[in-house]
């Protein structure tokens, strides 16, 4: 295969021009999807992390089981289960609805773990000092614990958010017309790999700055761990 053939198959400007509108619409859907599932997952995570501050074993153990079950199920399995399974129970869900439920369960469990670890990373003396000056449990949480926790867990939060944005690509499996789905459509119509390559480039351009930032933060964190 000559270089020209190769370029034609993967980097054809002609094909790119044709596929551009549909790819752009996919990109918009991917961004909308991310704007929905990241807050949704964070919301689920905050709920779980707040529940984790309850010390009763009747809360703690079921909570841990919940988190571990949804961290064990691959997100795609969860999504298919909701999308293809629930209609059999008489519950029709749209692709968007299925993605929302699946991500709430999966992403929420991951965010929940990160938030919990962040809260626990703040020394007990901090809460004691706050309570000794008369701050309530909630005030101590809001003013003393959370600001420190967020700083400690920032790399993990960013890293998880990156993974969530990448994960939106599985919505293509339930025919939600996001970037990967549209690229596949374009590819199957044109019999040319350029649309998929273009989609990959779009993801890379979008997420590369985040990866750079993260790798800097993580290096610092691991080095500080010794």
């Amino acid at each position: 295969m000559s270089w020209d053939d190769f370029a034609l198959a993967f980097f054809s400007l002609d094909i790119l021009r044709q596929a551009c509108p549909i790819l752009l619409s996919g990109l918009v859907q991917t961004l909308l999807l991310s704007a929905m599932v990241v807050p949704l997952g964070l919301f689920g995570g905050v709920l779980l992390a707040l529940l984790a501050t309850v010390r009763s074993p009747f809360v703690r153990w079921p909570l841990m089981a919940w988190v571990d079950v949804f961290r064990s199920l691959p997100p795609l399995v969860l999504l298919i289960f909701v999308y293809a399974g629930l209609p059999f129970a008489g519950l029709e869900v749209s692709a968007w609805g299925a993605v929302a439920i699946g991500f709430f369960l999966n992403t929420g469990a991951y965010y929940g773990e990160i938030l919990r670890a962040g809260i626990e990373s703040v020394p007990a003396g901090q809460v004691e000092a706050a309570r000794s000056t008369g701050l309530s449990r909630g005030q101590a949480m809001a003013w003393v614990v959370l600001p420190q926790a967020v700083r400690n867990m920032l790399p993990d939060l960013i890293s998880n958010t990156l993974e969530v944005v990448k994960l939106t690509s599985i919505a293509s499996v339930v025919a939600l017309p996001e970037l990967l789905f549209q690229a596949r459509q374009a590819q199957s119509v044109t019999f040319n790999a350029t649309p998929i390559v273009a989609a990959a480039v779009a993801y890379f351009v979008l997420l590369w700055p985040v990866v750079r930032l993260l790798s800097r933060l993580e290096n610092r964190q691991l080095a500080g761990r010794r």
């Binding site: 198959a9 990448k166 690509s169 293509s172 998929i196 990959a200 993801y203 590369w208």
Partner: peptide, 25 residues
């Protein structure tokens, strides 16, 4: 290379190999 495969969704990489490579024979 590391940044590339950290930034790309795994499903996109799979699609690239499975649906894309045949275009190169």
């Amino acid at each position: 290379a590391v940044d590339l495969f950290r930034a790309l969704p795994p499903l996109v990489v799979i699609a690239l190999f499975y649906f894309g490579l045949p275009a190169a024979g």
